[in-house]
Design a protein around this nucleic acid. Structure first.
Lengths: 241, 241
DNA sequence: GCAATAGTGTCTGTCAGACAATATAGG
DNA sequence: CCTATATTGTCTGACAGACACTATTGC
């Protein structure tokens, strides 16, 4: 029996990796996608920015660990959370073997701003996706002061998060997770344009969204405009399907 | 400092979960999707069928672990392998905490048959997906002798694999991973129909596939038919995009 | 020539993009 | 009335489904 085969029978005989979750907290700021980052105090990558993360407890599910990090490290009570991908390169953390389950977390503009307010240690950086079409290349993560290099393989994780977001935007409800409870069609279109990085045709967008049956008109109108106010809609989880 | 917070700072102070990979080996048999299963010898679920899997070594990546299981447990040298999802329910294995990274592996008909031949311990079971539209419900896994109950949460993993396969079929190259190097358009359509579970329109399917630019005509024809032989095509990885 | 399937042409409905016209709120 | 944006209407081109027709091979 080789060492490799022994792994199949006696997991206790071998060293186990640590398992962590890392969160890509995304919101829309000034019509651009942005991500919330923490600052690392200790080596490796001391001083660099990183995704909020934490180890998975032996008695907690991955989703629970993600929710705990969301609450503890970002001070956010509730957000759309979905598992993204699991990163398992051997040397992705130079200290020891850590396998990281990445989660995508989506915040509306108010929740994003509130998190920044409540946790001054957080930094918001805008994400720019070079229009590389399908294949997910690198993304630029920057503040007005300049680019923000990330620790570990976290830039890859953000890039994958944007790719996933783009892919799911049109056929799933992720777009609504970036908006408040009530929103106008223009706000919804702004979110889609920010994620996709391209302008969209207004009448076509309206038709498509309304025909999907996901929107319920509230009868209310937005306030505070100096022009014709738009109708407020609410996301309605699809019925029959 | 609470126990939870301590996890963030000292991973060695707490027990680590084991990490495994499980493979959903899918091929098309008799125009139906099928999966390759191993038989469990030891408890829990002794005697039941399960997905081939193994623990992840401390010095191997997740992809490497998946390739090792592919080779060792299924006797397959090469297949399309892609990470599917990571399952982390606390009690998914009653013995101990095992987090499993599920992989989707796609085999063409010959490779599927060869694996069955080479490893007599493998069982091929057909997968039937109830036409539940989008939301991924349960799938039926059965042989001609009857339904095959799976160990652990492996039935959920197979269900997710089918959902992913259906979702990616039309816009990615996964369909070609289920076919040999050279194939006819009819074979390609058969694969799509088997995965989607619905008949497709022949002229529209041909147009769509040829317009995508993924197919290269070989000039050769299939042999052994008693009627007009179809042209053989080869998958050509997209150029410009 | 016959059987059976490969491959093509054409019609039609659906739908997105483009463009423009109309509606409406505050000032 | 004027400004700025919401909302709607219409035209057009791209494309999928339906259906029928032609092509080709073995027998």
């Amino acid at each position: 029996m080789t060492d490799r085969e022994a792994l199949d029978y006696d997991p206790n005989a071998y060293q186990r990796p640590s398992v962590a979750v890392d969160l890509v907290l995304i919101g829309i700021r000034d019509s651009r996608p942005a991500v919330l980052l923490v600052k690392r105090d200790a080596p490796p990558f001391a001083g660099r920015r990183a995704l909020p993360g934490g180890f998975v407890g032996i008695d907690e599910t991955l989703d629970d660990a993600a929710a705990r990090v969301l609450h503890g490290k970002a001070g956010i009570a509730k957000a759309h959370l979905e598992q993204l991908y699991t990163f398992g390169a051997v040397a992705r953390d130079p200290r020891m073997r850590i396998i990281s389950v990445a989660y995508l977390a989506l915040l509306d503009e108010a929740a994003f701003a509130a998190a920044l307010e409540d946790m001054p240690s957080l930094l918001a950086a805008t994400i720019t996706v070079p229009w590389a079409g399908e294949t997910g290349g690198a993304v630029e993560i920057a503040t007005p002061k300049g680019p923000v290099p990330l620790a570990f393989d976290h830039a890859d994780i953000v890039a994958l998060a944007m790719l996933r977001l783009r892919g799911k935007l049109d056929y799933s409800d992720v777009g609504f997770a970036l908006l408040p409870d009530r929103f106008t069609l223009r706000q919804l279109q702004d979110v889609h344009e920010a994620i996709l990085g391209v302008p969209l045709n207004k009448p076509a967008f309206r038709r498509r969204m309304l025909d999907r049956g996901w929107l319920a008109a509230t009868g209310e109108r937005e306030a505070g405009t100096s022009f014709r106010p738009a109708e407020l809609y609410r996301f309605r989880t699809p019925q029959g399907a």
